[in-house]
């Protein structure tokens, strides 16, 4: 390194520069970074391999959407049909109705169901007797384990006009029975109420974990500052879990057009089908029951593209508003 032999401020600057360029040309900066983080890459590797093997190796399945795939014939020998499946889907006279039903239900879900676990978690957090808090927590998460088939059966038992327990109560009060199960106007509220009943308690767990990570000192400081409980909730608790809320919201948007097939399938009948038909049930009818793999894959692909637009769009928005976002 001859530069060290030279003297004077000019030379020093020059030397620094040349040293940097020499280093840069021989060993690019990223190698140094990788070397420094080598253990992180080791940690990353099993997960990365998992994604490549189990998620990306089977990814050719997406291409089925452009084929007329037959399971026995296999991927390589099935006929390629270009965009025909998509054309059939969009040209389907039911497309607009399916999109509308799916969209409305998804919005209902987002507006009514998504906030429910957050609210319940915050309310639980305000309970100071630990035994009661744990007891309630354990009770509200029980319905998560009851399968949809059973939930649908019990809904029938409670709501039927032919002696359903709840409908009899309605009859005692109002003097008439409400056809909850057949009336199309009741379909969406019913779906949302079922899902709220079944999953709210389960959904609280993740927020409770976030709340458990909130620094106790912050609360103490707020108390010293004279904040009452509502102020503490607003200024300490909510900000602490806001990033989890935002992430869950973004991830939910990625599955925006998924309505939960089994539930809707079970609650659909001849009298409410006009509002109950959604993409997921449609895919079942044309795909699973009739073996139209390619067609149902095409519909899935359409849903995924909508999902990816929403996920990246909302992630971008979240970042603009100063949130962490997905990454």
């Amino acid at each position: 390194m001859d530069s060290t032999l030279q003297s004077g401020p000019d030379a020093a600057v020059k030397a620094k520069k040349s040293k940097a360029t020499v280093l840069g040309s021989q060993r690019p900066s990223w190698i140094g970074k990788v070397k420094k983080d080598r253990w992180l890459y080791v940690l990353l590797l099993p997960g990365l391999i998992y994604f490549l093997v189990f998620k990306y190796l089977p990814m050719w399945g997406v291409l089925i959407a452009f084929q007329n795939f037959q399971p026995f014939v296999g991927f390589w020998n099935s006929e390629w049909v270009g965009l025909e499946n998509f054309r059939n889907f969009f040209a389907n006279p039911d497309f607009v109705r399916l999109l509308r039903n799916t969209f409305i239900l998804a919005v209902y879900d987002l507006v009514f169901f998504f906030p429910a676990p957050i609210i319940v978690a915050l309310l639980l957090n305000e309970i100071r007797v630990n035994v009661i808090k744990r007891f309630i927590q354990t009770m509200v998460y029980v319905p998560h384990f009851i399968s949809m088939v059973i939930v649908a059966s019990m809904t029938y038992v409670f709501l039927t006009t032919q002696g359903g327990v709840l409908n009899e109560a309605v009859f005692q009060i109002t003097g008439r029975r409400i056809d909850f199960l057949a009336d199309p106007d009741w379909f969406r509220p019913l779906i949302i109420l079922q899902i709220m009943w079944k999953e709210t308690g389960w959904g609280t767990i993740i927020f409770l974990a976030a709340l458990a990570s909130v620094d106790v000192e912050q609360y103490e400081a707020a108390v010293v500052d004279g904040a009452n409980r509502f102020q503490r909730l607003w200024h300490v608790t909510l900000p602490a879990i806001s990033s989890v809320i935002v992430i869950l919201l973004i991830l939910r948007l990625g599955n925006f057009l998924d309505n939960g097939f089994e539930q809707i399938f079970l609650m659909t009948n001849s009298l409410n089908r006009t509002v109950a038909d959604v993409f997921d049930t449609y895919v079942y009818f044309v795909g699973i029951t009739q073996g139209a793999f390619s067609y149902s894959t095409a519909i899935g692909l359409f849903k995924s593209i909508v999902g990816i637009v929403l996920i990246y769009g909302s992630n971008w928005l979240a970042k603009r508003f100063g949130q962490e976002g997905l990454y």
């Binding site: 994604f51 093997v53 189990f54 399945g61």
Partner: peptide, 27 residues
């Protein structure tokens, strides 16, 4: 971490697009 964004995108993408039941079964 270098390459982090790429991997994050890989992860997010895999959440939305999946090969489906049959290709996974074959793997």
């Amino acid at each position: 971490l270098l390459g982090r964004n790429l991997i994050m995108n890989l992860v997010i993408f895999s959440m939305l697009f999946s090969g489906g039941m049959i290709p996974t079964y074959l793997v």
